[in-house]
Write a protein that binds this DNA or RNA. Structure first.
Length: 1017
RNA sequence: AGGCCGGUAGCUCAGCUGGUUAGAGCGCACGCCUGAUAAGCGUGAGGUCGGAAGUUCAAGUCUUCUUCGGCCUACCA
C-alpha cells in the first residue's frame, strides 16, 4: 500500500487519511455478466481437459457412480431435462470433491417411434411413401436424425455446466450397444424366461399394420349396438345333473389331477336347461335364466370367452311378464328371466321390447361369481361344437353401470380390458379347466381365422379394398344372424360412437390379438427377485420403494415386441413348430454369429444377413423374427452395455436418479432386465425428483403458455442462476419456476457473489506467513472457525443423502447473518485501520482465508462457473473443480465460546433496537456516534470468557485486542444497569479522522491509528 | 375412475415422536452509511398453517371428509 499524501500543514486543512487505510482491493467484478462469462469458462475447462484431469487425479479412489438415465434424442432440452442434468451434476461434483471418483458418462435413448415418425414425415415430404423406402435406408436416416439431436442436446447440457464424458457418451444405437442388447435378450431366451404369447393391439386392417396410441384419432362412426343374452348353465358347487362332465374332462386332458378333482367335485358342465339354480335363497330351473350384455362390436361375440361384472353394482333377476307387439320374431318370450344391473334394467327392457316385468330377487355378486354361462352361439347351426366351453364370470374394475347392462362381454383377443381381466383371472380359469391362452381369432386382414367355426372363417370385419373400403364387412351381419337363430339376440339398433381411426387412412381401427413376445414374471421367479432387490435398494425419498414395489407386484408379464422399424431386433429364429433356436444344440454358435453380425453392422446386421449364414444347419422351415424390441428394453440394458462394458465404470451403479415417472419406466425396465439376466438390480440406490411446474403449481404446457425454456434463462441470467434454483428447491416434490422465483435466486446470487468478492478484496496480498495460530486468535475469529466446523461436520452426510437444499440454505444463511451482517461488519475496523502486522488483523485474514477455501469448494458444485471465477481471482490458472472439500478440525469446535458470542450478539440486537429511534429522530446517524451502556446481566461473564475488554482505549495501540465497543460497532461501551445510548457528538470526544471513531486524547487520530500510520511513513 | 404424493408469510424453505405469543432467508416499507457503493448496515410490517368436522386438557403436527395441484395407470363393452 502506498501513500502519496503530503504532510498535513496547518493551512492545508485536515489531513485526508484515506490513503493510509487498508481497504479491500480487488478487480473482481461486482456484476457477473454470466451469459457472456460462462462460455469462456467452458472453454477454459476444455483446454484444461477437466473431465480427463479429474479421472487421472482420482485414479485409485473409491468410485461413486451415478448412472445416467438416457434422455430421448429428439428436440431441445426443457426445464425438466435441465433440472435433471443439473441435479446429477450437483451430485457428481459433490461426491468427487468428497474425495471419491465420480465418473459421469451421459447417454441417450435413440431408437423408437417418435424418431420413426419424424423420418417418415421427412420422406413423405419428398414424395416417398413408407413402402418406397428400403428399410436399411430408412434406418440409416433414423440413425442420422438421432445423432443430430444427440449433438445438439450435448451442447445444451454442457452449456449448463455439466461435467462428464461428453466425447464418449453411451448411445443405445451404437453398434456395440445394439449387439449387447441382442446378447442380453438371447440370455433371457436361453434361460427360458422368454415366451411367445398373444395380446390385443390396435390394428388397422386397411393398412395391415399395428398402430400406436398416438397414431390413432377418434372420430364418430355408425355402429350396430346389440343386447345379447348368455344363458346361465349352472352355478359352481350348487348345480345338479351331470351329463357332459366326461366330455369336459376329456377335452382338457392336460389338466392337473387336482384340477380334475376340483372339476369333479363341482359336478360340472351340464347340458343347458337341465339344472336348478339356487340364488337369493330360492331355487330356479336354469333353462330360462340369462345374463344380458351389451356391445357395439357384434363381430367380437364369436371371440367371447367370459363375462365381466363388478361387485360395486346392484344386480337383479327380472322375469318378463309382457312383451311389446312387434312385426318380427323376438328371441325372448314371456317367463324368461334376465339378470341385469338394477340401474340399467329400465333401458334394457325398453330396448328389448319388454313391456312389463317383475323383479324376482337380488343377485348378489358372490353368487354371480360362481355362475357359469353358455356361449350364446353354442347351439347355432354350424357351431361344430366350437362353442362347447364354459363361459366364466370374471370380476373386473372396468365394469360400470353407466351404459349397457352392468355386464361386459369379454373377448380377450379384442380388447385391452378384456385381455387384462382374462389374464389376471388365471386361477379361476384353471379351476374351470379353461385354457388361458388368448386365441388368435383374426388375421392381418381383419378376417376370422380357423379358430372360428367354418361358418365364420374368412369373414371380414372391415372392407379393406374397393369402393366401400373402411366400411363394415361381412362379419357383423353374419354374427347377428347367428344370434337371431339361437334366440339370444334381445335387441339391435344403430348408434353413433366415438371410435379409433387410423390417422393416415381414416379407416376404423380394431383391437386384435397378435403373436407377441413376453418376458415371464414368474417362470424364473423374476417378480420375486425384483421385489427382493427393491428391499435391498436405498430410496430417496423413501416412498419410492412403495411406489415401484406395488407396480412390480401387480405388473403383468413384460411385453417386449413391437411391429416397427427403428429399433433393436428380436434376434430369435423360430422353428416350424414354434420352437426357439435357443433350445437347439447349436444355440451358442448361432448366438455368436447373430451378435457378431449386429456388432459389425448394427441392427441391419440382423435384417440383412440371410438365415443360412446365421444358422447354417437344419434351417428348413426356420424363420427370423422380424419384430423389434420395446425401447424400454433398450434403456433397461444401459447397465449392460455402458456400466458393464466400460473399464472405467463399476458393473453396478451407486445411484440411478430420474423424475418420479421413471418408477414405471427406466427404474423398472432396468430392474427387470438386470434381474432376469444377473439376478440383481443394476443400482444400489434410487433418487427421484418431481416435475417442473409454473408459479401456480400447474404443469407447463404450450396451450397454457406457461413454458419457460432453459435457453432463454441462460441468455438472460446465466446457467449458474438455474443451478442455484435447483439447489434451493425441494426437488422431491413439484418444483416451481416463475419470474419471481428466478428473481429471488438472482438476488441470492448477488449476495453470495459480493460476500466472496469482499473476501477476495480483504485477502489481497495475503500470504501464509502472516497466518496466526488458532491459540493466538481473538475469540471472534475462533468463533468463526467454530461455525465453520459446525457447517463442515455434517456436510459429508448431507452430500451422501443428496440434501443439497439444506447445504445451500445453511451456507447462504451463514454468509448473510454470520459473515456479512456480523463478522465482516465488526472486523471492518480492524481490517481497515489496525496496524498491518497486528495480531487481530492477521488473525482475521487467516480466518478469511480459511473461509474462502471452504465456501468456494462447498459452493463449487452449485455455482460451478462463479466459484471458478472466484477461485481464480486468487489462484489464477488452477481450477476449483480439482479441489476436494477442506477439513474443519475438531479443535475448532468450542460450544462454550459460541454460547458467549450469542450472548454478545443478543446485546447487540438490544442496542440496535435502542439506537434505531434515535436514528429516526436524526440524533444519531452512524452507530459510531453512539456511546452505550450495556446491561451487565450475563454479559460480563461472556465478555470475560471472550477476553473482551471494557475500555475506550486499546491497552496496546500497536496490537489492539477487542473491546465491547468493537463488537457493538460503537465508539464507547460500558456495562451498567439499563441500556442507555448517548450521543458522542454532544461531548468533548473527537472524531478520529482515520477510523471515524470518537475518542478522547491528543491528535486528530486515535493512538491505534497513529501507530498504523507511523508504520507506513 | 384408481394408486402414490403434496398444499406453512408475496417467493424459497424450517417446524423431530401433538405442548409456551408458528421460525429463517429473500422480497417489501422506512431509515442509516457513502472507506464492500448498480454494494454494506439497522429497524419494521406480513402467515393461524388449502377448507370442514372430529380425537385430545392441548393439533400446523393424529383421524375422516372435502378442495386444489403433481406423477403414474385406466379411459368404456
Amino acid at each position: 500500500m502506498t501513500t502519496d499524501s503530503q504532510d498535513s500543514s496547518p493551512d492545508s486543512g485536515p489531513r485526508d487519511y484515506r490513503d493510509t487505510l487498508f481497504l479491500p482491493k480487488t478487480d473482481f467484478p461486482m456484476r457477473a455478466g454470466l451469459p457472456k462469462a460462462e462460455p469462456k469458462w467452458i472453454e477454459f475447462w476444455d483446454e484444461q481437459k477437466l473431465y480427463h484431469t479429474l479421472r487421472e487425479q482420482s485414479e485409485g479412489r473409491e468410485s461413486y457412480t451415478l448412472h445416467d438415465g438416457p434422455p430421448y434424442a429428439n428436440g431441445h432440452i426443457h426445464m425438466g431435462t435441465a433440472l435433471n442434468k443439473i441435479l446429477k451434476d450437483l451430485i457428481n461434483r459433490s461426491h468427487q470433491m468428497l474425495g471419491l471418483n465420480a465418473n459421469y458418462v451421459p447417454g441417450w435413448d435413440c431408437h423408437g417411434l417418435p424418431i420413426e415418425w419424424k423420418v417418415e414425415e421427412e420422406f413423405r415430404a419428398k414424395g416417398r411413401g413408407k413402402d418406397d423406402v428400403p428399410a436399411s435406408e430408412f434406418r440409416a436416416r433414423c440413425r442420422e436424425y438421432a445423432k443430430g439431436w444427440v449433438d445438439i442436446q450435448s451442447e445444451e447440457f454442457q452449456r449448463l455446466g455439466v461435467v462428464g464424458d461428453w466425447d464418449n457418451p453411451y448411445l443405445t444405437m451404437r453398434f456395440e450397444s445394439e449387439a449387447v442388447i441382442c446378447a442380453e435378450l438371447l440370455k433371457i431366451a436361453n434361460s427360458g424366461q422368454l415366451y411367445r404369447g398373444s395380446k390385443p393391439i390396435m390394428w388397422s386392417p386397411v393398412e395391415q399394420t399395428a398402430l400406436a396410441e398416438a397414431e390413432v384419432e377418434y372420430a364418430d362412426r355408425r355402429v350396430t349396438q346389440i343386447y345379447v343374452r348368455f344363458p346361465v348353465n349352472y352355478r359352481r358347487g350348487k348345480s345338479v345333473n351331470v351329463d357332459d362332465f366326461d366330455k369336459v374332462v376329456s377335452s382338457n386332458s392336460n389338466l392337473r389331477d387336482d384340477q380334475k378333482e376340483q372339476l369333479s367335485a363341482l359336478q360340472d358342465f351340464t347340458e343347458t336347461g337341465k339344472g336348478m339354480l339356487e340364488t337369493g335363497g330360492q331355487s330356479f330351473a336354469t333353462d330360462n335364466i340369462s345374463i344380458v350384455i351389451w356391445t357395439t362390436t357384434p363381430w367380437t361375440i364369436p371371440a367371447n370367452r367370459a363375462v365381466s361384472y363388478s361387485p360395486s353394482i346392484q344386480y337383479g333377476l327380472y322375469e318378463i311378464t309382457e312383451l311389446e307387439e312387434v312385426e318380427f320374431d323376438l328371441g325372448q318370450s314371456i317367463g324368461d328371466k334376465l339378470i341385469v344391473a338394477d340401474d340399467l334394467w329400465e333401458s334394457v327392457a325398453k330396448a328389448s321390447f319388454i313391456k312389463d316385468s317383475k323383479r324376482v330377487t337380488d343377485i348378489n355378486t358372490n353368487d354371480l361369481s360362481d355362475f357359469v354361462l353358455d356361449h350364446p352361439l353354442r347351439h347355432m347351426p354350424g357351431a361344430d361344437g366350437k362353442y362347447d366351453f364354459p363361459i366364466p364370470m370374471l370380476e373386473g374394475d372396468h365394469v360400470t353401470a353407466e351404459a349397457g347392462t352392468g355386464f361386459v362381454h369379454t373377448a380377450p383377443s379384442h380388447g385391452e380390458d378384456d385381455f387384462n381381466v382374462w389374464m389376471s383371472n388365471g386361477d379361476k380359469l384353471a379351476s374351470l379347466g379353461i385354457d388361458p391362452a388368448v386365441p388368435l381369432t383374426m388375421d392381418d386382414k381383419g378376417c376370422y381365422t380357423d379358430v372360428m367355426p367354418e361358418r365364420f372363417e374368412g369373414l371380414d370385419v372391415i372392407r379393406t379394398s374397393g369402393k366401400k373400403r373402411g366400411q363394415d364387412g361381412k362379419a357383423n351381419p353374419e354374427v347377428i344372424k347367428a344370434l337371431v337363430e339361437t334366440g339370444n339376440l334381445l335387441a339391435r339398433a344403430p348408434m353413433t360412437l366415438r371410435d379409433a381411426h387410423s390417422w393416415r387412412s381414416k379407416a376404423p381401427v380394431i383391437r386384435r390379438a397378435t403373436p407377441q413376445w413376453f418376458i415371464s414374471m414368474s417362470k424364473d421367479s423374476l417378480r420375486d427377485k425384483a421385489l427382493a432387490e427393491i428391499e435391498r435398494t436405498k430410496f430417496w425419498p423413501e416412498r419410492g420403494r412403495n411406489r415401484i414395489g406395488t407396480m412390480v407386484k401387480d405388473r403383468p408379464d413384460w411385453l417386449i415386441s413391437r411391429q416397427r422399424n427403428w429399433g433393436v431386433p428380436i434376434t430369435l429364429i423360430v422353428g416350424p413348430n414354434g420352437e426357439l433356436h435357443t433350445e437347439r444344440a447349436d444355440a451358442d454358435a448361432v448366438n455368436a454369429k447373430i451378435i457378431e453380425a449386429v456388432f459389425h453392422h448394427g441392427v441391419d446386421g440382423w435384417f440383412n444377413t440371410p438365415i443360412e449364414e446365421l444358422m447354417p444347419e437344419n434351417n428348413a422351415g426356420w424363420e427370423k423374427v422380424s419384430d423389434i424390441l420395446d425401447v424400454w428394453f433398450d434403456s433397461g440394458c444401459t447397465h449392460a452395455f455402458c456400466l458393464k462394458q466400460r473399464d472405467d465404470l463399476p458393473d453396478r451403479a451407486d445411484l440411478y436418479m430420474e423424475g418420479s415417472d421413471q418408477h414405471r419406466g427406466w427404474f423398472q425396465s432396468s430392474l427387470m432386465e438386470s434381474c432376469a439376466v444377473y439376478g440383481e438390480a443394476p443400482y444400489k440406490g434410487i433418487l427421484t425428483h418431481g416435475f417442473v411446474v409454473d408459479a401456480k403449481g400447474l404443469k407447463m404446457s404450450k396451450s397454457l403458455g406457461n413454458v419457460m425454456a432453459p435457453e432463454d434463462l441462460i441468455k438472460k441470467f446465466g446457467a449458474d442462476i438455474i443451478r442455484l434454483w435447483v439447489s434451493s428447491s425441494d426437488v422431491t416434490e413439484e418444483i416451481r419456476i416463475s419470474d419471481e422465483v428466478i428473481k429471488t435466486n438472482t438476488d441470492s446470487y448477488r449476495k453470495l457473489r459480493n460476500t466472496l468478492r469482499y473476501m477476495i478484496g480483504a485477502l489481497d496480498g495475503y500470504d501464509e506467513s502472516e497466518a496466526v495460530d488458532y491459540a493466538d486468535m481473538p475469540a471472534l475469529e475462533r468463533w468463526v472457525l467454530h461455525r465453520l466446523h459446525e457447517l463442515g461436520s455434517d456436510h459429508e452426510e448431507l452430500v451422501r443423502n443428496h440434501d443439497h437444499r439444506v447445504i445451500f440454505s445453511r451456507l447462504f444463511n451463514f454468509c448473510t447473518n454470520d459473515l456479512s451482517a456480523f463478522y465482516f461488519d465488526i472486523r471492518k475496523d480492524a481490517l481497515y485501520c489496525d496496524p498491518l502486522d497486528s495480531t487481530r488483523r492477521r488473525a482475521c485474514r487467516t480466518v478469511m482465508n480459511a473461509l474462502f477455501e471452504r465456501l468456494t469448494t462447498w459452493l463449487a458444485p452449485v455455482l460451478c462457473f462463479t466459484m471458478e471465477e472466484v477461485w481464480q481471482a486468487r489462484r489464477p490458472g488452477s481450477s476449483v473443480h480439482l479441489e476436494t472439500f477442506r477439513d474443519c478440525p475438531d479443535a475448532w469446535q468450542d460450544n462454550a465460546l459460541a454460547k458467549h458470542i450469542e450472548t454478545v450478539r443478543a446485546t447487540r440486537e438490544q442496542i440496535n433496537e435502542t439506537i434505531e429511534p434515535m436514528r429516526a429522530e436524526k440524533v444519531i446517524k452512524s452507530s459510531l456516534e453512539a456511546s452505550v451502556v450495556a446491561p451487565t446481566s450475563g454479559l460480563a461473564e461472556a465478555l470475560d470468557a471472550l477476553s473482551v475488554i471494557i475500555a475506550d482505549d486499546y491497552a496496546n495501540p500497536s496490537d489492539p485486542t477487542d473491546t465491547l465497543a468493537d463488537y457493538l460497532i460503537v465508539s464507547n461501551a460500558v456495562l451498567g444497569e439499563v441500556i442507555t445510548v448517548s450521543d458522542l457528538k454532544e461531548t468533548d470526544a473527537k472524531k478520529c479522522l482515520r477510523s471515524w471513531k470518537y475518542f478522547h486524547g491528543e491528535g486528530e487520530i486515535t493512538p491505534r491509528d497513529a501507530v498504523a500510520v507511523s508504520r507506513l511513513d
